[in-house]
């Protein structure tokens, strides 16, 4: 039992990029053949397929015709001039930043709120976490109904005497992106809560009590004692939600399809549309490369910053 908890206690994420030169030669190590199937799958289904697909980023392949000719960086130059791609980039960043912040603040508050003493804390946690395990597609259909012009949300506004605020939420250029955000926060706040609860559990009670006896204000206590100890959970939660946010796809396709007129278009939906809807496979592949670069850069940058804070805090 001790072994397992000990093992759980180190986040696998914390080893991203870290060297683990534990070359102890106690006995003969396990044979590489055991890893062969997994490595084979990795090389074929990931690297080989992606390399084959990525090659198209440098071609003008239409997807429909069997021929593709090499056009160098033309697709990437085109991205810089493409108004829709720029809108998609802005939307992606806007949505991701708001999503990460909102979901983590809410998740942290929920974790702190349901931490101890509550009689129904397990029930409350389950209720908040449940949406996170459901199919994004199914969830989106429920919300599509809620946001419908004749739907429950406008119904509430009418009842509250705010009939003038009624609108077609998913069709409104200024609101559509935020309605998507609401759905995302609703679905994933519970997930962030779980990350923080796990982090909170590792803080020894004595530490809290000592601080309480010292007469520290709750806020001071939170800033000085709880938050620094939560740093690893913060890192995991931020990284996880960042990756989630940058790749949001199903929900947008099901809720707005990227509309109205690109107002909710993101890089992920653009990759999909350029490739599969417009059949511009080369261009779609180039966009996908840009998206993955963005994901990699942002993920590592955020990780570096948080890691630095973890050490310093």
């Amino acid at each position: 039992m001790t072994v397992t908890t000990e093992a759980v206690s180190r986040p696998p994420w914390s080893r991203l990029g870290a060297r683990t030169g534990r070359g102890r030669t106690g006995g003969k190590p396990a044979p590489w053949a055991w890893a062969a199937p997994a490595i084979l799958l990795l090389l074929t289904i990931h690297y080989l397929a992606i390399a084959a697909g990525a090659w198209y980023a440098f071609t003008d392949w239409s997807g429909a015709s069997p021929r593709a000719s090499f056009i160098g960086l033309a697709n990437f130059r085109h991205i810089l001039q493409d108004h829709t791609a720029r809108t998609a980039l802005t939307n992606t960043l806007e949505l991701t930043v708001c999503f990460v912040v909102a979901v983590n603040v809410l998740g942290l508050l929920l974790a702190l709120g349901t931490r101890r003493t509550l009689k129904t804390r397990n029930l409350i946690r389950s209720l908040f976490f449940a949406p996170a395990v459901l199919s994004p597609l199914a969830v989106s259909y429920i919300w599509q109904f809620i946001f419908d012009y004749n739907g429950p949300l406008n119904f509430i506004l009418r009842m509250a005497g705010m009939g003038s605020q009624q609108r077609a939420w998913l069709g409104s250029p200024s609101w559509a992106l935020w309605t998507v955000l609401v759905v995302l926060v609703w679905q994933f706040a519970g997930l962030a809560m779980i990350f923080y609860l796990a982090g909170l559990q590792s803080i020894p009670d004595e530490l809290e009590e000592a601080s309480a006896v010292d007469g520290a204000t709750p806020f001071y206590h939170f800033r000085r004692v709880t938050l620094p100890l939560l740093a690893p959970a913060l890192t995991v939660s931020f990284t996880f939600t960042l990756l989630l946010g940058l790749r949001i796809f199903d929900q947008i396709i099901a809720l707005t399809g990227g509309g109205p007129v690109n107002a909710t278009e993101t890089l992920a939906t653009q990759v999909y549309k350029q490739t599969w809807v417009y059949g511009r496979f080369g261009y779609g592949a180039a966009l996908a490369l840009v998206l993955s670069l963005l994901v990699a850069i942002l993920a590592f940058a955020q990780l570096a910053v948080l890691r630095l804070r973890e050490r310093g805090g």
Partner: peptide
């Protein structure tokens, strides 16, 4: 058009 046409 029906109300909320842009979202239908």
């Amino acid at each position: 058009f029906e109300q909320g046409v842009e979202g239908v």
